[in-house]
Write a protein that binds this DNA or RNA. Structure first.
Lengths: 336, 336
DNA sequence: CTTTATGGCGGAAACGTTTGAGATAATAAA
DNA sequence: TTTATTATCTCAAACGTTTCCGCCATAAAG
């Protein structure tokens, strides 16, 4: 690999001058700067990121912390889309991304230690259990952090507007004439709490009674569980006319439960999802759901994180809320 | 951050000795080694990966090169699963992974230059157009490379056994009594070629005529296109009794086309997919498809790549074929 | 008792950068 | 003419490792 030294000997200047020229310092003449830039390009020079990092304590690397359990993680469309957008934004600012985890390799280390070892400039935490020791360590550490869909004190958070999303769905469903609305919730988490709050609030506003019997505890991303819950709801004496599923993916379980009961969507029972994944619009009937703005969530997370990194003095933390958009499918029937 | 030097002054030995003790060199007594290890642990020492990389020219970082266009990349379940498995295997060997691309950040650089800049120890290439300049540069470079689902001379490749997969599907369908089988292919690529070869071969073996009119050019991961193609097939005077879809995701388009034509699966027309994604088993009827062994593909890619890295002398390149498994759903009807 | 091996350790250079402090020369001000 | 200022560049240290080489004991061999 061609180094600063190679350029310096070729051009008859010192290494320092080359470094300064390439980094745009002002104490090098325009003439030599151009000469050096030209030589660097010709020789195919690229800075050695490790050497630079060693000296500057900046790696231009962003850590991504998430749960790679089956069902969440990379194969989760929401996370994949957020990550993709995060990646694009980060890269345009010159940052690369590295997956951070409890590395079980040669050295056993915690997630936070992993961050330190790799010297990431910042970390984004998403789609994971936020109540673990590993997360706390990172949150309490001295590395810039942005969280997605979870709020910690003194840390910037990007929040998908789950409350508003559910509210819009409730309003839509209510306007279609539904009164008995069931809600199969996702697993206990900040997101689930906010959705539930939105659900109750919107129901109140629409004058719809929230029957506790219709609030079931389900799981995100778990069609089997959702199948069961849906069956339970169907078996009820005064069955709901509409079911809120934990998310689009799970809703497939709900669809099947309904079908297996000899009923159909939306004639006999209406269904709404959440997420707006691609598949939801390939179903028939198309699913009425709430599309989370993953592009904005990801890019905003990257922007905020980079801002924290590049302005270390800012102790100011923000909570940024990202709205989504209701997608009207054909899974909710208009009641007379 | 605590460094070797910190440990050395605390324990009254030289930096060199600490380094050697921690790296398991033999020229340090068992007594001092233990003393130093203990101190290192107490002080919370972790090696500085950049400094180490600078000296050893090994970063313990693996580059992942893929296409992040919409439709492929992270949101593609096949790739996501392969990546996840690759990641797990790599991490257990102490490697982290970094996404490699044409970085458009501060410095404009090609993918290969990006590899050099980040000093990745090796690169895996998957799910991308293998005929681009960017890929050639990497293939012809001096970094260890493993490719997935594409074979280059002198480079190790992991191949999902597409040929066998299609063959098994054809055999299954033939055994169910089908004679007129249509095949909507994916976009022109090595994978598509192999699948077509498998298709033709298996048909011959089963004594089934391959009607060119039933071999349509479609796209992978494109339900809309598949919808159209399926419509065309349905409109034919002597309509096929079974359709091979490009992949499971696309098959949703096929399902909808059939439904929209007032027909149903599998009563009127049978369907098989490819990939074995989670959704395929949530459809009703469940899709008969071929599950690619993404876990093995990913982990094998990592193992091979690491082996190439850690045994630099081996000029030996392999092509490793990974079989999958047919999943029998209910989308193929048994003909009398 | 001298030589030779060996086990344990330290010195120091090197990897490729960045950066503040100095050096030099030219220019401007006094 | 002297002094101050500026522009341009070099020196050298530093970042945290690894590793070759050499040193010094002690032990084994002659």
């Amino acid at each position: 690999m061609v180094s600063l030294k190679d350029i310096s000997v070729r051009c008859g200047v010192s290494v320092a001058t080359v470094s300064k020229a390439l980094n745009g310092h002002k104490d090098v003449s325009e003439a030599t700067r151009e000469r050096l830039l030209k030589a660097a390009k010709e020789m195919g020079y690229f800075p050695n990121s490790q050497a630079r990092a060693l000296k500057t304590n900046r790696t231009l690397n962003l850590g991504v912390m998430f749960s790679d359990d089956a069902g969440s993680g990379l194969t989760h469309e929401f996370f994949a889309k957020v990550l993709n957008s995060f990646k694009t934004e980060a890269e345009s600012a010159g940052y690369d991304i590295t997956f951070i985890n409890k590395n079980v390799g040669r050295q056993k280390m915690s997630t936070y230690e992993h961050c330190k070892y790799r010297n990431v400039d910042g970390v984004v935490i998403a789609c994971t259990d936020f109540t673990t020791q590993d997360v706390y360590e990172v949150i309490n550490g001295d590395i810039p952090v942005v969280t997605i869909d979870h709020i910690f004190d003194c840390r910037t958070a990007i929040m998908s507007n789950n409350e508003k999303g559910i509210e819009e769905l409730v309003n839509y469903v209510a306007d279609m004439g539904h009164k008995r609305i069931a809600y199969i919730q996702g697993n206990k988490s900040a997101v689930a709490d906010r959705r539930l709050a939105g659900f109750c609030k919107a129901c109140m506003n629409k004058g719809i009674e929230v029957d506790p019997a219709l609030l079931l505890a389900g799981d995100y991303h778990n069609p089997e569980k959702t199948y069961e819950m849906t069956k339970e709801l169907i078996a009820m004496s005064d069955r709901p006319t509409c079911i809120f599923m934990p998310d689009d993916y799970s809703s497939m379980g709900g669809f099947n439960a309904i079908k297996d009961s000899g009923l159909s969507v939306p004639e006999d029972i209406s269904v709404v999802g959440y997420d707006g994944i691609a598949y939801s619009q390939l179903l028939s009937p198309k699913l009425t759901t709430y599309l989370q703005d993953t592009a904005t969530i990801g890019s905003e997370a990257a922007k905020q994180l980079i801002s924290l990194i590049e302005n270390p003095q800012t102790t100011f933390t923000e909570v940024i809320t990202v709205d989504g958009r209701l997608i009207e499918g054909a899974s909710v029937k208009k009641l007379v």
